[in-house]
Amino acid sequence: MVIMSALFSFIFPPPSSLVVSGMSVISLVSLANAGFSEIRGKHLNYSKFWNANPSAEKQVKLSSKAGMLLLYTPAFLAGLASFWIFPHQGLRSTLLQSAVTLHFFKRVFEVVFIHKYSGAMLLDSAIPITLSYFLSTATMIYAQHLTQGLPEPPIDLLYPGIVLFVVGIIGNFYHHYLLSNLRGKGEKEYKIPKGGMFELVICPHYLFEIIEFYGFSFISQTLYAFSFTVGTTLYLLGRSYSTRKWYLSKFEDFPEHVKAIIPFVF
């Protein structure tokens, strides 16, 4: 009872919608399982792990650029459409819609203008990731819609959420930019990233993405937003662990002090 009372001090009451309640559980469990699978060596096949599966050569492949556009575009369009479907529902809802839409717009922008590519993406991995982003965006916005008319949580996290979102999206973009600068024109080989927080962790872009998602949760203050964010955190912890392990296996001079995602800790 004490835990539940503390929880409801900073989130809206759980929605009456069985769909949203079910999605809260599904998102948390599925993303956490994906994170543990990464640690066990069963990777989603994109980026440097695109061909980690022995059967990858026999599966349908997309170019990395096409695959990344497939991942982010439906979620971006869902965020954009939400302004028409749920217009003028108050400051909190508008800020959440804006933050989610801006997040995926940035990802599409990076795919087209920032990232440099070296591999491919398996369609079998692209489809579940695309669905996850699209459904999480739609569900997060719909869950916010269901809070209309409810009393605000006793502890207001809206403005801290804005700060976290801004820090997260800027930090994520900056480190994606540093990654893109590692390769010259026509180069495809991987290098040890340098600069920024790459001096401390190998996946600072994941760290700032987690910060960004906690920004979503603080702005939203719904059970679904927090469930999805915790699940995303667990997945990115697993993915960053595997990424550091990959760099250690490929580069003899990889600095041991550089952690996976949390400076000096993990």
Rank of each mutant, 00 (worst) to 15 (best):
S5K: 15
L70C: 14
S24V: 00
N172L: 05
Q148F: 13
F49T: 01
S55G: 05
Y174P: 04
I85S: 02
D156P: 07
V265P: 00
L234V: 00
E189W: 01
K185V: 15
S16F: 12
S64Q: 15
H145Q: 13
F213L: 13
Q59T: 11
A66S: 15
S63A: 06
G184E: 09
A34Y: 03
A120K: 14
P160K: 05
L237H: 03
L122P: 04
I169A: 03
K259V: 02
I141R: 05
A52I: 04
Y241S: 10
L131F: 13
A78C: 12
Q221P: 03
L80G: 06
F49E: 04
G231W: 07
R40W: 09
S125D: 04
A75V: 08
S47T: 10
G184D: 06
P193A: 03
F208C: 02
S63F: 09
A78Y: 10
H205Q: 12
F113G: 05
F226C: 00
G119R: 05
S136R: 04
K188R: 14
G149I: 09
T232M: 13
Y247A: 00
L96N: 00
Y206W: 05
G149V: 09
F198Y: 13
W50K: 07
V108P: 08
Y72C: 04
G90Q: 08
K194M: 09
L31W: 07
A34R: 10
L71E: 11
S27I: 01
I169G: 01
V25R: 03
F113D: 08
V108W: 10
R40L: 11
T232K: 05
V19E: 10
W84V: 15
F213W: 15
P128T: 05
A6I: 15
F104H: 12
W50D: 09
L135I: 15
G186M: 08
A34T: 09
H115L: 10
T137Y: 07
F86R: 06
M68T: 13
I210C: 04
A6V: 14
V29P: 01
A32G: 13
S21L: 15
P54A: 02
I26D: 00
L150I: 05
